[in-house]
């Protein structure tokens, strides 16, 4: 029955012939125990993750960084409008914005720290652009 007749585990996957194990050591999680097939499966998974991470980092991430920063800024401003009274800015609806507290609780402390540590807005803005 052609190729199918060959038992599957006799066909060594192509990457097993590539000396990638040495290269990947320390770069990705290498399984220490388990049988050979499991080890190879795991190596393959990690490799996939590593490659996709690299592609994401070098192409997608750079493109979305600016948008991410913008979204981040708008959210920070929104937090300022919602919870300005925590920083001493009176807010007419501080009572009603409390309802949102459970949903932003985790962001609140770092946000407050960021707001208090702001040095210059110009430098912060300039940092967003790639002048190189």
């Amino acid at each position: 029955m052609g190729v199918r007749a060959v038992p599957f585990n006799f066909v060594k996957p192509f990457w097993s012939r590539i000396p990638c194990r040495e290269f990947l050591k320390g770069r990705i999680d290498m399984p220490e125990n388990g049988n050979e097939t499991e080890k190879e499966q795991s190596v393959l998974e990690s490799l996939k993750e590593w490659v996709s991470g690299m592609l994401f980092g070098s192409f997608v991430e750079i493109g979305t960084q600016a948008i991410r920063k913008e979204a981040f800024d708008i959210n920070d401003n929104l937090m300022l409008l919602l919870f300005g009274d925590f920083l001493g800015i009176p807010n007419p609806i501080s009572y009603y914005t409390l309802e949102l507290l459970p949903y932003v609780a985790e962001e609140l402390v770092p946000w407050e720290r960021r707001m208090q540590n702001r040095k210059t807005i110009v430098a912060e803005k300039a940092g967003q652009y790639d002048f190189g």
Partner: peptide, 21 residues
Amino acid sequence: IVDEIRRQIEIAYSSPGAEEA
């Protein structure tokens, strides 16, 4: 986290508009 932001809750509670609201 709830413990960390307890201070904020107290501020809001004593804010001047709270009772009116």
